[in-house]
C-alpha cells in the first residue's frame, strides 16, 4: 500500500471524512455541554462558571491538544470534502435534463457539500464573533471578569491562629495569609492575575468575560461589564438558529454515513446507528440553537 493511496484512493478519502466527521461529532457534544452553562446557570454564578470553564478550555494542555485536533479535523474535513466534491462533479460532466433524485435519496444526503460549506461559513462567522475577539484581537483590551474573591474567612487553619489563610477557588493555588494586601497586576496586556503585593504568589486570575460577550452579542445589555448590547442581535440569533438547522441536516446524513464509510454495517445494529444518528442530528443542533434563542428572548 503506497502512502499516497492513504490520501488519494476514493475509499481512503472516505475514511478520513468519516473519522474527522465522527471526531467533530464528539467535539460538538463537549462544546454543547460547556455552552449549556450559558443558559442553565443564572446570574453572577453562571457568568463566573462559564468564564472559568472558558479559561479552563483555553489553558488545559489536554484540551489544547483536543482543540488542535478539532481545528485539524475541520480543516481536513473541509479540504477532503472539497476534493471529493470536485471529483464527483467531474464524474458527471453533463447532468440529466430531468432528474427525480428525491425518489431514491434524501435531500440532506445529496447536499452534504452545500450543507458543509454553509457550516464552514458559520464556523468562520462564529469564530470571528467570539474566538477571534477573545484570542486574537489586540486592538482593545478585552474586558475581564474579575469577581469578588471568595476568601474564606474560616478556611483551613494551617499554621497558627494569627495567620489566616485565604483559599481561592483553585485548589492548586497556594493559601494566602490573611493580612497580606492584594493587588492586581498586569503581566501581559490583557490577562490580569491577582497577586499578593510584593510577592509572586498568584492567588486568582482575571478571566476574559466571554459570558458577557456572548450575552451582549445575542442582545442583552452588558455595558456594565464593558459589552454594550449588539443592535443586530436579532439577525445573529436567526443566523445561528438557521445554521444549526443546516448542521442538523448535515448530521442527519453524516452521522450514520460515517459508520457506513468505515465499514460498520450489520443488520443487527444498523437500526441503532441510524436512529442514534437521527437523534444526534436533532438534539445537538437543537441544544445549540436554544442558547442564542433563550439569551435573545431573555432581554425582552
Amino acid at each position: 500500500m503506497s502512502k499516497s493511496a492513504l490520501l488519494k484512493s476514493s475509499i481512503a478519502k472516505k475514511y478520513w471524512m468519516a473519522l474527522t466527521g465522527l471526531f467533530l461529532c464528539t467535539f460538538l457534544i463537549g462544546h454543547l455541554i460547556g455552552n449549556l452553562q450559558l443558559i442553565f446557570m443564572a446570574g453572577e454564578e453562571g457568568r463566573r462558571a462559564f468564564n472559568v470553564y472558558a479559561y479552563f478550555m483555553a489553558h488545559n494542555p489536554a484540551i489544547k491538544i483536543l482543540s488542535y485536533l478539532t481545528y485539524f479535523s475541520i480543516l481536513f474535513h473541509t479540504i477532503d470534502g472539497i476534493m471529493l466534491t470536485i471529483k464527483n462533479k467531474k464524474s458527471r460532466p453533463k447532468g440529466y435534463a430531468y432528474n427525480n433524485a428525491a425518489a431514491n435519496s434524501s435531500s440532506s444526503s445529496r447536499n452534504m457539500a452545500l450543507l458543509g460549506s454553509l457550516i464552514l461559513v458559520f464556523i468562520v462567522m462564529h469564530m470571528a464573533n467570539f474566538w477571534y475577539k477573545a484570542k486574537i484581537d489586540n486592538s482593545a483590551p478585552f474586558p475581564l471578569h474579575v469577581y469578588e474573591l471568595e476568601l474564606k474567612q474560616d478556611g483551613k487553619k494551617v499554621r497558627n491562629d494569627q495567620t489566616m489563610y485565604y483559599f481561592t477557588h483553585q485548589p492548586t493555588l497556594q493559601p494566602i495569609p490573611k493580612n497580606r494586601k492584594l493587588v492586581y497586576r498586569d503581566t501581559t496586556n490583557n490577562i490580569t492575575d491577582l497577586y499578593i503585593k510584593g510577592t509572586n504568589i498568584k492567588i486568582a486570575e482575571g478571566y476574559k468575560d466571554l459570558h458577557s460577550l456572548v450575552f451582549a452579542f445575542f442582545g442583552q445589555d452588558k455595558s456594565k461589564y464593558g459589552f454594550p448590547k449588539n443592535e443586530q442581535a436579532l439577525y445573529f440569533t436567526l443566523f445561528y438558529i438557521i445554521s444549526m438547522l443546516v448542521l442538523s441536516f448535515h448530521l442527519w446524513h453524516g452521522f450514520a454515513s460515517a459508520f457506513q464509510s468505515l465499514g460498520i454495517n450489520h443488520s443487527s445494529y444498523n437500526k441503532l446507528i441510524k436512529s442514534s444518528g437521527k437523534l444526534f442530528a436533532v438534539l445537538i443542533p437543537l441544544g445549540f440553537a436554544i442558547i442564542p434563542l433563550m439569551i435573545f428572548l431573555n432581554q425582552i
Binding site: 478519502k13 464527483n88 431514491n104 444526503s109 445529496r110 454515513s257 457506513q260 465499514g263 454495517n265
Partner: peptide, 28 residues
C-alpha cells in the same frame, strides 16, 4: 473516473437486483 461514494443510498434503491449497501460497507 467514477465518483466517490457519499452514501446517499440512491444506488440501492434504483438497483434492479436490490444489491445491498451492506456490500459497500464490506468493501470499505
Amino acid at each position: 473516473g467514477f465518483g466517490n461514494c457519499t452514501n446517499t443510498g440512491a444506488c440501492e434503491v434504483e438497483c434492479p437486483k436490490g444489491i445491498s449497501l451492506e456490500n459497500i460497507a464490506r468493501m470499505n
